[in-house]
Design a protein around this nucleic acid. Sequence first.
DNA 1: TTGTAGGCGTTATCAG
DNA 2: CTGATAACGCCTACAA
Lengths: 340, 340
Amino acid sequence: MTRPPRAPTRRPTMSDVAAHAGTSLKTVSRVVNGEPHVSPALADRVQDAIRVLGFRRDASARQLAMGAAGRLLGYVQVDAANPFFGAVARGLEEETRSGGYLLLTGSTDADPAREGLLLETLVEARVAGIVVAAAEGGDELLREEIAHGTPVVCVDRSLAGASCDTVTSSNRSSTREAAAHLFGLGHRRVAYLGGSPRVWTAQERRAGYLDAVADAGAEALVVEGLAGRTEAAEAVGVLLGGAEPPTAIVAGQDRLGVGLLELLHERGLQHRIAHVVFDDLPLAGQLDPAVAVVRQDVTELGRTAGRLLRRRLEHHPDAPTTTVVVDASFLPRASVFAPR
Amino acid sequence: MTRPPRAPTRRPTMSDVAAHAGTSLKTVSRVVNGEPHVSPALADRVQDAIRVLGFRRDASARQLAMGAAGRLLGYVQVDAANPFFGAVARGLEEETRSGGYLLLTGSTDADPAREGLLLETLVEARVAGIVVAAAEGGDELLREEIAHGTPVVCVDRSLAGASCDTVTSSNRSSTREAAAHLFGLGHRRVAYLGGSPRVWTAQERRAGYLDAVADAGAEALVVEGLAGRTEAAEAVGVLLGGAEPPTAIVAGQDRLGVGLLELLHERGLQHRIAHVVFDDLPLAGQLDPAVAVVRQDVTELGRTAGRLLRRRLEHHPDAPTTTVVVDASFLPRASVFAPR
DNA sequence: TTGTAGGCGTTATCAG
DNA sequence: CTGATAACGCCTACAA
């Protein structure tokens, strides 16, 4: 029994409710907003009318009349299908939902034009604040918004030429620690697999690796610009085929680490190379237990961003900007082998 | 050089722009909306004023004046951190972004109360349509919205007592096929590991398994209500310790499959039990290559939902409701062994 | 305790 | 081509 689809009915307004309840607009407003000074009898009549008519107040009109910013937060991510950004969104939500905030989300696919469009739409929606996770490109618009007073929080990225709250993992120090661990085990040729050097976190991780290289007085072996598993596997193949192959490898991301492992496994070399993976994604549990990983709590990045946003939105609009570095912990494992 | 954070400036309005350009409100409106019948000279002056003042039109006011629904779509998911829902969101975006739509998202954590609150907020935001992915509970509100005329699309779930567009994977037939494959290999005792029987997809998959059991005239071995890896591993332990342990196991979800594999691996039995995992998540690449999987294209679920929504929103508001079943492909692999 | 008047920023209508 | 003026749905003042 499919009811015939009825054309979208006009939403009842407060005036409709008032008419139905035989009272005035303002009284309905009071009831809807739970304001005091309404006689119980009248309040009941109004409640009934609301139920009967199926009234829902219009957030747009409300926001317009109140002048203040609404309860929408903009969340700009590179790709909703990437678990990293999902985890950030999750943390953001956890921290802001009690305030009645909703997330207005969009993916940029790392395309500056898309990011620009997205930001523009968010601004037109008059979001109360914006969280930008690891996208780059629409920066000019972002700076304008910051200058205008909209709270902006950058997650896992930086923003040149403007000051805004920022949340990152300890990319540099963790990667440094990981590489240092390998040098400490006696390795002299430790290679680094990195993603696009245009991404800020990749730069930071490479810097951490180079720190450790400098400390150890060793030679830097950097391969970057790697886009995924396949490219990582290829790169490792080349590395291992070289004159002086590395005895240990640091992978700057999960995906690269997986590619690394796949190749090592395929060649039966998984126990002859020590490796460290920087854990962006929830894959660590699936990885070979012989792998040492740097684990970052991605959801905590989101939660922190949410906290910074609410602080600025609800308590200290003019507080100086902060940068919070969430500790990513390096987890060495016994099975990271000493060099042959 | 941190600029002193300036207090949120009032947004310039069209009137401000009009004043600055020495013209009237309506002309500015025309320019902003790219309407014809404005002299180039005047248009330029207005454009300048817009740039100088940093004007952005207010979507709320626009929507209010236009009466029509805006360009916001509500997306209700169980958990933003779950890659499944992220993938759906991604597909949704892909399909709707060219229409200028933005996603208003929220996670329910499978809590009916939360889902209710979320839906309420979405309705107040006057979203043009709602996509509900695998959450259950706030159904009453959902039905009201459908009755009111708001397009609703259910993804990977059903909605009793109302008719709305629905998108699912071929859960039942794929699981049936997978189990049949195992029976075809000669197995007689094939067990099924399933999640909460309150979740619709779990019911469907179990039904598919039972179909195959009936076809094969075998005995049903169902363990359900399993919440994750750990519980799945435990359940498998119990199964294998029984009097007549199964020789093959069908796991209804990725997570359960991972738990299954973990236990088999731990006991050195990974090559003595054939198993089939239903692939919700992007884990297939990480799994033991001996596992046969049912793969569903989750993003396609989202894309389909997006298409259905736009069709209803922009073309056929009164079309009869559709149920689209996206094929999930069963991928047997050579290394799924025959019984001992 | 209740109701009236005015305005929020935009679009639509209809005169100039 | 251009511009007053009246909505849109709601809230904040300010009466009554």
